[in-house]
Nucleic acid binder design. Structure first.
Lengths: 341, 341
DNA sequence: AGCGATATTGCAAACGTTTGCAAAAATGGG
DNA sequence: CCCATTTTTGCAAACGTTTGCAATATCGCT
C-alpha cells in the first residue's frame, strides 16, 4: 500500500502539525519519536501510528541545529599533487567503500567532498568550521602535511589517512610505508634482481617513505635504487609508463611500483615489449588490491589492510568526537609473494 | 600565519557575535557574508575582515533550516540482491567518483548512504522525507524496481542509475543493456563461438537485459545461450567462478560475462585450467573498466560511458530540483574489440 | 537648506526541533 | 480518601540564520 505523498496534500509537515492531530504537545511528539524518552506507551503508539500514516519524518536540519550535532562525518579527498586525478583512483575508492560501511554501521552518514587544495587556499576550514559535520576524515595527505598540522591544532575531531612522521600533531592512520618499502626490496633482492628502480612519484609522503625503505635495504646490499617518476592520473598513465618501461628494460632487472595500479600498467607494457616477468624483470607492487590476484602472472605485492585501516580510522574519530585524545596508528604491511617476483 | 582557533577562545561563534564586533546588526552581517546583497562596500569589507580574522563561518544547519534547502545531494546504493557485496564494487565506485566530481562542480555536496533494502522495508524514505538533502541519486535498482516506482510518485527530485523499462515512472539514466547484450553476442558469433554461456546473476534488471539481448542474437543464429549464475561479492567470487569455469571448459567455447570484474575472474581461472583465450574460449565482458586494457590478453568488452552517465544524472537531477519534468536517458554502449574475442 | 529619490541598515519574525523545568495526572500506601 | 511519590505531559526558551518591511542615511538638485 503506497503511502500517498503528493506535495500538496501533506497536512502534517512538522512535529507541531502531528501534535495537533494527536491532541498532544509538540514536546511529547518529539520525545515519542525519539523513542528513548519517558512517554506513556499508549501515547507513543498513537503518535507513531499517525506519523507512519502520513509518512512523517522530523526535519533533520532543525534537529541538528537544536542538538548541535549532525550525525554526519565528512570525508575529504585532497587532490594536491595529482590535479588531473579524479576521485576515481581505485585505492581511495576502496578505502572509501570500507569507510562507508564502517560509518553506516555506527549510525553516521558520510559526506564526501573532493578538493584541489592548490586552487583554494583553505580547503578544509569551510568544511569543519560550519557545523555541518561532527568530524572529518582526510583521505591522503597529498602535499598538505603542514596545513593539516595547523588545522589539527584548532580542530580535534579529525583523523587522516596517510604517513606518520615522528612528532606530528595530526592524528593519522596508515601503513608503515618504510617497512613496506623494505619488504618489497628484500623480496626483489631475494628474487635475484641487481639493478632496481622505483616507479612512482615521491612527492607524496607515503610514496617517499616507500622509496626510502626500499633504498635503505638496497644500500645494505650494496645495490642502488633509481627513481622513475610516474603519476597516477588514470588517463595518460599508460603512455607515461610505456615510455618509462622502454627505458627500464635497458637498465633494470627489478622494479618496485609505488602502487598496484602502476605495477599493473608496468606489467602490461613489459609484455608489449616482449619481456618476461619475472624471468627478465622482477616486479613488486603495493596495496594488494583485488586485481592483484587476477593478473598474469599474479602480482607479488605489499599488502595494506584497507578494511582494518577504515575500522581504525572510524574508531579513532569517534573517540575524538567524544573528547578523548588518541594516538596515531601505524599498521604493518605484509609481503604477499605471487608470480612477479 | 595560522589562525588561532583553540576551542575556548573563539569569541565569535555566531553571526550576532560578529555583528556586535562590527557594530552592525546581524542582518547586515548575513547579507555581507552572502555577498550578493545590497550592502555598502566599506561595511562589507570590514565585516569580511573580522570574519577572516576570527575564522568565522556561518552555521550551515541554521542557514539550511531557514532557507529550506541544503546544497546536498544524497547518493544511495541499495544492496539488495548482493547482500555480501560491500560498497566496494569497482563499477559503482567509479560512477560514484564521477558523480562526486560532477556535483562538486555544480556546488553541491554529496552525502553517501549504503543500505540493505531487505533488512529495512523503507530504506529510501528516511533519507528523502527529512529535509536533509535537496535530491537523491540511486545507484542501481537492485531488486527494488517496484519500490522505486512508488517513491517516484510522491518525490520528484530523484534520478536512478539502472535499466529502463517501457512506461516506467521513475527517471532513470543507464545504458541500453539489451543492445549491449546483442553487441556482445554478435562479437562472440563473429569470433567463431558456437556454444555459449552468460556468466552473471540475472536477478538484477540490468543483467537480465544483457542476457536477454544476447539470447535474442544467439537464437537468430540458431545458437543457444546457457546461464551460469555468478555473484559479484568480492570475497568468494573467485572460488565460485573457479567451479563455473571447470564446467564451462567442457561445454562451451564462448562466454559473455555480465561485468568486466566477472570476465577478469573468468580469465584468471581459465588460465589456471590451461585453456587459451581466445583460441579455445572466446570471452566478452561489460563496462570497460580501466583494468580491461591491462589484462592479458586485453579484454574485449562492451563499453559504458560512465562519465557521461554521471553528467547526465546530475544534469537531470538539477532540472528536477528546479521543478522541471524530465525524460529518462538511455545511452548506447559500444563494442570494444581487444584480445579475448 | 529642503525635498525627493535611492542606497543602506535595523527589526523581528520565521525555519522546525529539542529539552530543562514546572505543572498535572496517575499510582501506591496507609 | 488523602498525601507522597512517581510518571507523563505541557510550556517556552533556545539553536543561528535569512529576509520582508520599515526606518534611517546619503545623495543630487533646485
Amino acid at each position: 500500500m503506497p503511502v500517498d505523498r503528493k506535495p500538496d496534500d501533506r497536512p502534517v509537515r512538522t512535529i507541531t502539525d502531528l501534535a495537533k492531530l494527536a491532541g498532544v504537545s509538540p514536546g511529547t511528539v518529539s520525545r515519542a519519536l525519539a523513542g528513548n524518552s519517558l512517554v506513556n506507551d499508549k501515547t507513543r503508539e498513537k503518535i507513531e501510528a499517525i506519523a507512519r500514516e502520513h509518512g512523517f519524518r522530523p526535519n533533520q536540519m532543525a534537529s541538528r541545529l537544536r542538538r548541535q550535532k549532525t550525525g554526519v562525518i565528512g570525508v575529504i579527498i585532497p587532490l594536491g599533487h595529482e590535479q588531473k586525478q579524479q576521485v576515481s583512483d581505485t585505492f581511495f575508492l576502496t578505502l572509501l567503500g570500507h569507510l562507508a560501511d564502517e560509518l553506516t554501521e555506527k549510525g553516521y552518514d558520510l559526506m564526501l567532498r573532493r578538493v584541489v587544495p592548490a586552487s583554494n587556499e583553505d580547503w578544509l576550514d569551510p568544511f569543519i568550521g560550519s557545523g555541518m559535520i561532527d568530524g572529518v576524515i582526510v583521505v591522503g595527505q597529498s602535499d598538505q602535511f603542514n596545513h593539516l598540522e595547523e588545522v589539527a591544532d584548532g580542530y580535534r575531531p579529525m583523523v587522516v589517512w596517510g604517513q606518520h612522521r615522528e612528532g606530528q600533531r595530526h592524528c593519522v592512520v596508515g601503513s608503515d610505508n618504510l617497512l613496506g618499502g623494505k619488504l618489497a626490496m628484500q623480496r626483489l633482492v631475494a628474487a635475484g634482481a641487481k639493478r632496481m628502480a622505483f616507479v612512482g612519484d615521491a612527492n607524496a609522503p607515503e610514496f617517499a617513505a616507500r622509496y626510502s625503505g626500499a633504498s635503505q635495504v638496497a644500500q645494505s646490499f650494496g645495490l642502488t635504487l633509481s627513481e622513475l617518476p610516474a603519476h597516477l592520473a588514470t588517463s595518460g598513465m599508460t603512455t607515461e609508463i610505456a615510455a618509462l618501461m622502454k627505458e627500464a628494460v635497458e637498465n633494470y632487472d627489478g622494479l618496485f611500483a609505488a602502487t598496484d595500479l602502476l605495477a599493473l600498467a608496468c606489467l602490461g607494457e613489459l609484455r608489449k615489449l616482449g619481456r618476461n616477468v619475472p624471468e627478465e624483470m622482477k616486479l613488486v607492487g603495493f596495496d594488494d588490491l583485488p586485481i592483484a590476484q587476477q593478473t598474469a602472472p599474479p602480482l607479488t605485492t605489499i599488502r595494506q589492510d584497507i578494511g582494518g585501516g577504515a575500522r581504525a580510522i572510524v574508531q579513532l574519530l569517534l573517540r575524538r568526537i567524544a573528547g578523548e585524545e588518541t594516538e596515531s596508528i601505524v599498521m604493518p604491511p605484509t609481503l604477499v609473494v605471487r608470480g612477479t617476483a
